[in-house]
Write a protein that binds this DNA or RNA. Structure first.
Length: 601
RNA sequence: GGGGCUGUAGCUCAGUUGGUUAGAGUGCCGGUCUGUCACACCGGAGGCCGCGGGUUCGAGUCCCGUCAGCCCCGCCA
């Protein structure tokens, strides 16, 4: 596996790498370096698998071709020790060839062995036999230098490199400039919690690490750098998930004089290129649907379209049934929605209860269900369903109906959860392997506990058709925001931004900010917008998540060299650490509680 | 902040109803072995049963607390 940039394998220590040796190299004298992967000591003969980044080759030691001193030394070699060997590439005896190994037709006959650095017995194994489990993740993170030696992780990081390189080349061809933005920046008033850095020279003042370069890239547009891109590190101090790390990398871009189609087209081209690199399928143009449609049809703003299963609306069909739950839901402005599952009657009561649990975990009081049989139906919902209702439902004998009744805000997340669970419970096969989707027209605002929040961030341009409702009915205003969704995973999020300072001020006001607050927090942005800002917009794609989804890795930790744990700790180097009293004093900070912040040393 | 799962030898795991000396595979150490590739065979060492407390004649096993890892909810403009 010699790819780009590996044309010159030779260094002062070695003449070439191990993984590329083939039968055509037989007879050549070479010097190899690497790690002792595994050994098979037959007494008179000794075989060692030598590993470097390029792969494995079997090196052999024997009295006929190995110097006596080296032979003695070889029998004492420990796993993961670093060695250099000089010798000859030789064809293996026919019966001793190993078709499993790319280098399996040859072996490297060692004349001289040099132990460059002996290794202590590794705390976790690098070699992994068939059917052997990985070490516990805690240990893999603690001994990261060993875990990273595994070929799986090396392949993941290699693909990550290739994807980032492809990205840089792609945007370079389109005339984008990569421009760095500050890591030490200003706290963001809304959004996630910031990671903070105390200022030594300004007592009591703090920098924040950027949650994204959002404002800087808008300022770059104002400054006339009309196509900007950056592989940007971002930081958010929030609780973690399998798909969320406290520091992460985004492909961040912004361009001036653009409409949504410009951005979407560029990203589709990028995805096609990246997908080719990762050997998966992405054929533009991608399917598009509005945010409202996504919620209506799938209950989610990032539906997984590998399955076509859609929500049915039975409000009209069941709304007049003689059931308090159903009627009340409809009278209060809600709907009765759910899934019609062909052959779903084969699900057991227990399996259906699991679906209900999924709905309840997502906030629904329960899940209504009914199986249609040849002579009627069974299940809690069936008592309300007469022949007329059954006909309108579209169910045939053997089918299952699961439904939730109430306001969409409650039923959508519940049905989305049920959709995921029922796909698993029924073992429905994916109808395609790679489902790309644009979700458009996100709401400009959301309401949480009576307070208005930006749906995305406060700089998103309201949909031009909805502008007149900004003041009277802000929650109904759509925005020119778009998300890229791949197999149900949100890979990126972007929008056209506000470039008119007056409109920006109105949006801040709609968010409940006073003039003084606006000036203090965002004065510098408004100043920039008022100085000749072009219409502009952009998007940010999560690199870590993208690599993870392309590889099918279970966790972001498998595509990041040095990730944090779910408690935001770095186990390898042991960060964060307490701070000494002297350092704290210099930074003008003090622990709130006795004991906190006192270092071990 | 809340819920769930896990924690026993270097590593992966088993451990019965609470009962005598806590086991296996692998790795490690020693030995035999010239065609292995999960080499084979013989022998050996290796345990704070995460930590603290409690119940009990007796706790790896039951109870409470705590720590760590993982998964989920809240949170993530």
């Amino acid at each position: 596996m010699t790819g780009r940039g590996e044309g010159s394998e030779a260094t002062g220590f070695r003449s070439r790498t191990a993984g590329g040796l083939r039968s055509s190299d037989a007879g050549r004298t070479e010097r190899l370096t690497g790690w002792v992967h595994r050994r098979r000591d037959l007494g008179g003969l000794l075989f060692v698998d030598l590993r470097d980044r390029s792969g494995l080759v079997q090196i052999s030691f024997g009295p006929e071709w190995t110097e006596a001193e080296s032979l003695t030394e070889a029998h004492k070699l420990g796993s993961e020790s670093v060695i250099r060997v000089e010798g000859e590439v030789a064809l293996r005896p026919t019966e001793a060839r190993n078709p499993e190994l790319p280098t399996g037709d040859v072996e490297f006959r060692v004349q001289r062995l040099e132990l460059l650095n002996p290794a202590r017995t590794p705390q976790i194994p690098v070699y992994r036999g068939p059917d052997e489990d990985l070490a516990a993740e805690e240990l893999r993170l603690k001994h990261r230098h060993l875990d990273l030696r595994r070929s799986e992780l090396q392949a993941n990081l290699r693909l990550r490199h290739d994807l980032v390189l492809a990205t840089r080349n792609y945007f370079d061809r389109l005339g984008f400039l990569e421009i760095e933005t500050p890591i030490l920046t200003k706290t963001t008033p809304e959004g996630a919690r910031d990671y903070l850095v105390p200022s030594r020279v300004h007592p009591g003042e703090f920098f924040a690490l950027p949650q994204s370069p959002q404002i800087y890239k808008q300022v770059l547009m104002t400054a006339g750098y009309d196509r900007y891109v950056q592989i940007a590190r971002c930081f958010r101090d929030e609780d973690l998930r399998a798909d969320r790390q406290p520091e992460f990398t985004q492909i961040d871009l912004e361009a001036a004089f653009v409409e949504p189609d410009d951005i979407l087209g560029w990203i589709e081209g990028l995805m096609a290129e990246m997908a080719a690199t990762a050997e998966i399928e992405a054929v533009p143009p991608f399917e598009r649907m509005t945010h409202a449609e996504a919620l209506d049809r799938f209950g989610s703003d990032r539906p997984d379209l590998r399955w076509s299963l859609e929500i049915s609306d039975w409000t009209d069909a069941f709304g007049s049934a003689d059931s308090k739950i159903l009627r009340n839901a409809v009278e209060e402005g809600g709907r009765i929605r759910g899934f019609l599952l062909r052959e779903g009657a084969r699900l057991s009561r227990r399996e259906i209860e699991e679906l209900e649990k999924a709905a309840q975990a997502a906030g629904a009081p329960g899940l209504l269900w009914a199986k249609r049989t040849d002579d009627g139906g069974s299940g809690p919902l069936s008592r309300w369903l007469g022949e007329g209702e059954w006909e309108l439902s579209g169910a045939r004998p053997g089918d299952l109906i699961v439904a939730a009744a109430g306001p969409d805000a409650m039923t959508s997340p519940a049905l989305s959860a049920v959709r995921g669970s029922v796909i698993g419970a029924m073992g429905l096969p994916a109808e395609r392997d790679h489902a790309w989707l644009w979700v458009l027209d996100f709401p400009l605002f959301e309401e949480h506990e009576g307070r208005m929040h930006p749906g995305h961030h406060p700089f998103v341009l309201p949909h031009p058709e909805d502008l007149d409702r900004l003041d009277e009915d802000p929650l109904s205003v759509r925005s020119l925001a778009y998300d890229l969704v791949y197999n149900g995973s949100e890979l990126g999020s972007g929008s056209i931004r506000i470039h008119d300072p007056e409109l920006q001020r109105r949006v801040f006001q709609a968010l409940g900010m006073q003039e003084e607050e606006i000036a203090r927090k965002y004065g510098f942005l408004l100043e920039a917008l008022a100085s000749g800002a072009p219409p502009h917009g952009g998007i940010a794609l999560g690199v870590d998540r993208l690599v993870k989804d392309f590889i099918g890795a279970g966790s972001l930790r498998d595509v990041i060299a040095f990730p944090k744990t779910t408690a935001a700790r770095a186990l390898f180097e042991g960060a964060p650490t307490p701070l000494g009293a002297a350092e704290m004093e210099e930074l003008h900070i003090a622990p709130l509680r006795r004991g906190a912040g006192v270092p071990a040393s």
